[in-house]
Design a protein around this nucleic acid. Structure first.
Length: 593
RNA sequence: GCGCCUGUAGCUCAGGGGAUAGAGCAUCGGCCUUCUAAGCCGGUGGUCGCAGGUUCGAAUCCUGCCAGGCGCGCCA
């Protein structure tokens, strides 16, 4: 509908351009917008005000000319010029009513384009390290990524959803070490758990599982483990910042020494423990995401990517292209030549690859698989990482527009629910168990991802009218209930009669509801282009508001026969849009509440 | 110090060049013998962080401050 009007205005402007009344290039600026105030019609255009200056004419006078050049359209009731030069379009009631027929005919595919003709896009999201349970920050990226994918897939994109498993590198080693040290504890050895090792109870669980299945095979005497190792440095509470930084660095060194010792004492056993520990964490992550209704087409292992040679190939190409140099024993990538603020290390002085080296190979591999568009969903703390990945992609493919990164701002929990001690944070699983999948997803998605999110746990878990997610779900359930009542009372909804009676839907509540429903496609498209599911969440709240108001103002089952079927058609169409929109957010549309 | 995000009603947030700035919660007052009151109707409440600038028009764009968050690793 918006596009129809845009075409009309463009045509009128074209006529004026050809008549020499407007400059050539001006036409592109024309905008059509929904009005805020119904007295301004359904849509308005600012074209006359925008073109006034280049045309050297007064806005209202120009508006007259544009309106005069407007082709006839059966969509329009009237066109008015108002305010400083707005052209306001009033739709004929029929144009609005027809949306009901279109929705009911299209069903769940209403306003959707599932052709995939816009191209293939690979969306990587969550990708939480399998070194512990998912927390509430990961949940935001999961809900966002999943919903954006739903929206993209409904607006012409062929979407591939991927989770990158960071199962190589130092963090995975530290996980393994942490599990092993707990395992030793459970074998009766007395060791102090390192401060920078993973502290959570889930580490003990993994350790116990290994002990149960493999027995004491990996047990070594504490004295042997700690032999010749220095004390772990500790900074006092009142230490200066530099002292604390020194202690932290020392603790990392201590951890590295322990890692080396673990490898020496365990041999192949260390890799076994690491794989077991990673598998445990990954299983926990998978089950959490399953509960959250988040699915992936592919889980891609960093370790496998390395083993399959993709990193090696990428590094050779970068070296061949002369982008790599050595300094202080490390291999560096000249990313600063491609917009990064400094060069980055690919291989550390100890010969091991950085996370960045593997990750850039992964991104290039994504492009090689035929995805022209890549989207990554990251926490805002990874902001500084964007430039180097873009730089690497550009070095290897010549493209600087391939990767779009969406940053999730931080999540905090309301009312002091944040766990204070590390390893004791609130997990996503706990949040879902507490507030429910639907409320959790809706709360995440109702806020712009650009905005720090204060998650109101008490509100999300409350089963009262204060909780906004129920407001939308209730509108859907209410309509379902209406049709149940209809059957119970021996009435039927005659859809054909409803279609023929649509002209009866002229009440202000009906007009408002019809207008909101006709916006669905525009909102979906905007949410898709902006990658902003929260637009859809807000739209659904508005749609529910319009429906509840309508429901309270009118009767349906007991309405006069000449309007009853039309009203029921309107209700059925509303239910369809609610259901489709909630599906985009991954929130259930219950039939009863 | 540099980079990114944010500052809008008491609280949580939409709106991100357009017409009198919106919603939910909170608060105050109405509406259930009739299809779910997890609902509806109405009232109170805002110098859009501050100061300049651009524009016919600025909460929105630009600059500078102020405040908060997050980064600035041979961690991932």
């Amino acid at each position: 509908m918006k596009n129809d009007l845009r075409a009309l205005v463009a045509e009128a402007v074209g006529v004026l351009v050809r008549a020499g009344e407007l400059p050539q290039a001006a036409a592109i600026e024309a905008q059509i917008e929904r009005t805020r105030d119904p007295s301004h019609g359904d849509f308005s255009s600012n074209v006359a005000m925008v073109l006034a200056k280049p045309a050297r004419r007064r806005p209202r006078e120009l508006a007259e000319r544009v309106v005069g050049a407007l082709p006839a359209s059966e969509l329009l009731e009237k066109v008015e010029i108002a305010g400083p030069g707005f052209i306001n379009f009033f739709l004929r009631p029929h144009a609005l009513q027809a949306v009901v027929t279109r929705i009911l005919a299209a069903g769940e595919s209403y306003a959707c384009d599932r052709s995939g003709q816009r191209g293939r896009i690979l969306v990587e999201y969550v990708s939480a390290n399998p070194t512990g349970p998912m927390h509430v920050g990961h949940g935001r990226g999961a809900a966002y990524g999943d919903s954006v994918c739903n929206i993209l897939a409904a607006t012409g994109w062929e979407v591939h959803r991927e989770y990158y498993i960071n199962d190589a590198g130092r963090q995975a080693d530290i996980l393994a070490l942490s599990v092993w040290l707990r395992y030793l504890e459970q074998c009766g050895e007395r060791l102090r758990h390192p401060r920078r090792a993973y502290p959570g109870d889930y580490i003990r669980v993994s350790a116990a599982r290994i002990r149960e299945s493999d027995g004491p095979r990996y047990c070594r005497a504490a004295a042997q483990v700690l032999q010749d190792l220095p004390e772990e440095p500790v900074a006092a509470d009142d230490a200066s910042d530099t002292e604390k930084a020194d202690a932290k660095a020392g603790q990392e060194c201590y951890l590295d020494a322990l890692l080396q010792r673990a490898r020496a004492l365990l041999g192949e056993g260390f890799a076994v423990i690491r794989q077991r520990a990673l598998a445990d964490q990954l299983a926990e992550i998978r089950s959490t995401l399953e509960e959250f209704g988040v699915h992936f087409d592919q889980w891609r292992s960093e370790r496998e990517l390395v083993e399959e040679g993709y990193v090696q190939t990428a590094m050779e190409k970068l070296e061949a292209a002369g982008h790599v140099y050595e300094l202080d024993g490390a291999k560096w990538l000249r990313t600063s030549a491609f917009g990064d603020e400094k060069d980055r290390v690919l291989y550390k002085a100890d010969g091991s690859a950085t996370y960045f080296a593997n990750d850039l190979a992964y991104h290039v591999h994504k492009l090689e698989r035929g995805f022209r568009h890549l989207m990554d969903v990251w926490g805002a703390d990874h902001h500084g990482y964007i430039a180097r990945v873009r730089a690497a992609i550009e070095m290897l493919t010549g493209r600087n527009d391939a990767l779009q990164v969406q940053l999730m701002q931080f999540v905090t929990l309301s009312s002091g629910r944040m766990g204070k001690r590390s390893g004791n944070f609130v997990t996503l699983k706990e949040l879902i168990a507490d507030a429910g999948k639907d409320a959790t997803r809706f709360f995440y998605l109702a806020r712009s991802h650009d905005q720090h999110l204060e998650f109101d746990v008490d509100l999300a878990r409350s089963q009262t009218n204060e909780n906004p997610v129920y407001y939308v779900q209730y509108a859907h359930a209410r309509i379902c209930s209406l049709f149940r009542q209809l059957r119970e009372k021996g009435f039927t909804w005659d859809e054909a009669a409803g279609a023929a009676q649509l002209h009866a839907l002229r009440a202000s509540h009906e007009q408002a509801l019809l207008t909101t429903m006709s916006r669905y496609g525009e909102v979906l498209e905007s949410a898709s282009q902006q990658r902003e599911p929260h637009q859809l969440a807000h739209y659904l709240l508005q749609l529910a508001t319009d429906y509840h108001a309508y429901y309270n103002a009118h009767r349906f089952i007991t309405a006069p026969v000449d309007v009853r079927d039309a009203r029921l058609s309107l209700c059925a169409a509303t239910r369809q849009v609610l259901q489709s929109g909630l599906a985009m957010l991954g929130v259930a549309a219950p039939e009863t509440m």
